[in-house]
Computed example of a mutant assay.
Amino acid sequence: MEDKYTTREHTAFAHKFTRHAIASILGAIFSMGLCIAAGVNDLNVWSAFFAVIMVGCAIYALGYLRYRLMHVHCPECNTLCETYNDKTIRQWIANCHRCNIRWKLGVGSKSTSNIN
């Protein structure tokens, strides 16, 4: 059976996704450091406050990044694409059924430069 999709790199998705992931992780790490510092200095109320912020950053990161993976729009026609994790190339893919384009999102456990 012939594949009707052409494969292309998605423009700027990986950069935005990585930027949000790093910002969320850094926020959680910073809050964890403040939580530990407040706990060491017997500031239990502040320690609990920073612990809540740390958990909030982690939940935000997981929820938002999952949302971004499931709501990818085609750069050509702005249609919502169907996304899935392609196990053979270990990367997230978005299929646009309107344009018949398979977009490599640049997110996964293998860099896009190693994929043919």
Rank of each mutant, 00 (worst) to 15 (best):
M1R: 06
M1T: 05
M1V: 07
M1A: 07
E2M: 05
E2Q: 07
E2P: 05
D3P: 00
K4Q: 12
K4V: 11
Y5K: 03
Y5W: 11
T7C: 03
T7H: 02
R8H: 05
R8M: 01
T11Y: 04
T11M: 07
A12K: 15
A12D: 15
F13N: 04
H15M: 08
K16W: 08
F17G: 01
T18Y: 10
R19H: 13
R19Q: 15
R19V: 06
H20E: 12
A21Q: 14
I22F: 09
I22Y: 09
A23I: 02
S24C: 13
S24H: 01
G27H: 00
G27W: 00
A28Y: 00
I29Y: 02
F30H: 04
F30T: 07
G33N: 10
G33I: 06
L34G: 10
C35H: 09
C35M: 15
A38W: 01
A38Y: 01
V40P: 02
N41K: 10
D42R: 14
L43Q: 14
L43R: 08
W46L: 15
S47W: 02
A48H: 13
F50S: 05
A51K: 04
A51E: 09
V52M: 03
V52R: 00
V52N: 03
I53E: 07
C57L: 04
C57K: 01
Y60F: 11
G63Y: 11
G63A: 15
G63M: 14
G63F: 13
G63I: 13
L65A: 03
L65W: 08
R68M: 15
L69T: 09
L69F: 03
M70V: 04
M70F: 11
M70E: 12
H71W: 08
H71V: 05
H71G: 02
V72H: 06
H73F: 10
H73A: 03
C74V: 00
P75C: 04
C77M: 02
T79W: 00
L80H: 11
L80E: 13
C81P: 00
N85V: 07
K87C: 02
K87W: 07
K87T: 12
T88V: 08
T88R: 10
I89L: 13
R90S: 09
R90A: 14
Q91K: 05
W92T: 08
W92Q: 10
I93W: 00
A94R: 03
N95R: 03
C96V: 06
H97F: 03
H97A: 01
I101N: 03
W103C: 11
W103E: 11
K104H: 05
K104D: 08
V107E: 09
V107D: 09
V107R: 09
V107S: 10
S109L: 13
S111G: 12
T112K: 04
T112M: 14
T112S: 14
S113I: 07
N114L: 12
I115S: 12
N116G: 15
N116T: 15
